[in-house]
Every structure is written in C-alpha cells, then in structure tokens.
Amino acid sequence: MSDFSAPTFRLGFLHPRYLHTWLGVGLMYLASWLPYRVQFYVGRGLGYLMHTLMKRRVKIADRNLALCFPEMTPANRAAMVKENFANAGLALFETGMAWFWPKWRIQKHFTIEGLDTLLELEQQGKGVLLVAVHSLNLEIGGRGLSEQTPGVGVYRPNTNPVYDWFQFRGRMKRNIGVDRKDVKSMIHYLKEGHRVWYAPDHDYGRRRSTFAPLFAVKHACTTTGTSLLTHAGHATVVPFSVVRERRLGQYRVKIDPPITDFPKEAHAAAVITNQAVERLILRAPEQYMWLHRRFKTRPEGEPSLYEGI
C-alpha cells in the first residue's frame, strides 16, 4: 500500500491567503440550495459567458471536434461548441450539488441502469474496473452512482490544500480515495473485489502510453493503465456513462455489460478501450469535455495538431 492519506483540516487553512478559496466554496454551498431549475439556467448562462471570453478554449474544442468528426460542418461544430460551453458552466453548479446535496436529493434526480451487472460481479467476488469518460457532469454522476454502490475513486490532489480538503470530502462521501499515481493500491483494491473508477480518455503523456485510434484520429496517445490494472488486479472491465437527460433535472447512469476477453497486450487493450470511450462519448457528445487538448502528444516526427492555438 502507499503513503497516501486523506487530506485533513489544519489551522493553517484559516490563513488570509486562502480567503478566496473559502469564499468560492462558500458560494458553491449557498448556490447548491437554490432550486435546480435556477441553477440549471444560471449555469448555462455562465457557460455562454465563458464561450464569449475563453476564445482559446473555444478554438481547442472546435479543433477537437474537427479532428474527431471531419464530416461535421463548421456550422454544426460551432453549435456543438457553444452547447458544450453551456454544459461546462452548468458543471460548476453540478459540482456543488455533488458535494453538498443530501442523499435524498441526489437520488431524486438519478436513474441507474444496469446496476445488476455490478451486483452480480460483487457476488462472484470479482474486482471491477469501472471505465468512464470525462463528461462535464461526471462529478454529480459519480455521486449519484456512489449512493447506490460505493467504490474506489481515483483521486488527483489539488495544489491548493484548502480546495483539496473540500474536494476530497465532497467526492469521497461514500467512496475510498486513492491517488491517481498509486497504482499498487488500485491493484490491491481490485484484487480485494472492490470497484475502482478509472477514466482513460485523456492524454496523460508518453509515459505508460501507446498510440491507438480514437474516432477519426489514427494516433491518439492512450494510457496503457487500463490493461495493467485489469490483469494485475484480476479485474473485469465495465464501462459506464453519465448523461443529463432532456427532462429537466434528470440524470441517467448507464452501466454497460462487461468487456469479455479484455486483451493483455497493451496496444490491443488501448484499441478496445478507445472503442468503449467512443461509445460512451457518443451518448451525449455535447456533454463531453472537449475543452482540453486531447491530442497534444504526437508520435515522434508528427507535427502538433494544435498549431497556432
């Protein structure tokens, strides 16, 4: 096991240099008690403002869509990007919902589909690698799923210790927290029959990665951690998605059937993983995090796909 320990409150958190963090989290808490309808429309409005101000992020999102869906027209991409920013603004409020809402209020807004899959694997004593993508509503989706079936959350510590403390408390209400670099602990929990949440859809750099197709991009830098965790932890890979439905205030977590015969070879596993990632994203592409440079790492000799951005 690792030396990682959960963040705890310290008197130093009361230093004036953290005042902005306390005010920000305080606003999140107060906003979380507003009616959902109010948070929904104010969040989307904030997203439209972000779309106007964050020109570089708009270009990155548009470039990602052009790379992944070359058949999409510029007008359709522009509409998708604008909707994506509206979802990004709403995500700020959904974070407060996830951290501060009581259990009954979370459950009121959630439908879980395919939970029997996880319960059956639990009865068999099988560890599960729950593969997700970075949907903009993943924060509240994770809370919704954890109220039904807790797991192990892969956790990235924040450099701001006060925010890190709030973030950990909010995300790990029902889950065990593990540092994302703590591979040994993840494997340990999988061997013990736990469910470990894992999002392999970002570009994490060359270390422990390979280049596999993702949508129309032939060489997408893809972590090999999925294969490592699955086979070292004797686990079953189960993808799941979180989608905000058209009906106001309703979210659906869909748990897919297990991926059988998951490859041990790293590149083959990355190909299968990215196919699952594509399927999850396409359930609500406007709700996916297109704002980051997903294809920033290129094979040796290939130029940047974000030249000029």
Rank of each mutant, 00 (worst) to 15 (best):
F9G: 03
R10A: 08
R10G: 05
L11V: 12
G12A: 11
G12Y: 02
F13G: 01
L14N: 00
L14A: 07
L14S: 01
L14Q: 09
H15F: 12
H15W: 12
H15Q: 12
P16Q: 07
P16G: 03
R17P: 06
Y18L: 11
L19V: 07
L19E: 08
H20A: 10
H20T: 03
H20G: 00
T21E: 05
T21D: 06
T21G: 05
W22C: 10
W22G: 11
W22V: 03
L23S: 05
L23H: 11
V25N: 00
V25T: 10
L27N: 00
M28K: 02
M28W: 00
Y29M: 00
L30R: 12
L30S: 12
L30V: 15
A31P: 05
S32F: 01
W33C: 15
W33F: 13
L34I: 15
P35V: 13
P35D: 14
P35G: 11
Y36H: 15
F40A: 13
Y41A: 06
V42K: 13
V42H: 09
R44V: 01
R44D: 04
R44M: 07
R44P: 05
R44Q: 11
G45I: 02
L46S: 07
G47K: 00
G47F: 11
L49H: 07
H51A: 09
H51Y: 03
H51E: 08
H51S: 09
H51P: 06
L53Y: 10
L53D: 10
L53H: 09
M54C: 09
M54G: 03
M54N: 06
M54T: 01
K55N: 00
K55A: 05
R56H: 00
R56D: 02
R57M: 10
R57H: 06
R57E: 07
V58L: 08
V58E: 03
V58P: 05
V58I: 00
V58T: 03
K59T: 11
K59L: 07
I60T: 08
A61P: 06
A61Y: 05
A61Q: 02
D62W: 12
L65I: 10
A66K: 12
L67K: 02
C68I: 14
C68G: 06
C68Y: 13
C68W: 15
F69K: 00
F69V: 01
F69Y: 02
E71Q: 02
E71K: 02
E71L: 02
M72A: 08
M72E: 01
T73F: 11
T73R: 13
P74M: 03
P74V: 04
P74H: 03
A75H: 14
A75K: 15
A75S: 09
N76K: 10
R77Y: 15
A78S: 12
A79C: 11
A79Q: 11
M80N: 02
M80I: 08
M80Q: 05
V81L: 00
V81R: 06
V81I: 08
K82C: 04
K82Q: 07
N84C: 14
F85M: 09
F85C: 09
N87S: 15
N87M: 14
A88K: 07
A88V: 12
L90W: 08
A91Y: 14
A91I: 15
L92E: 06
L92G: 13
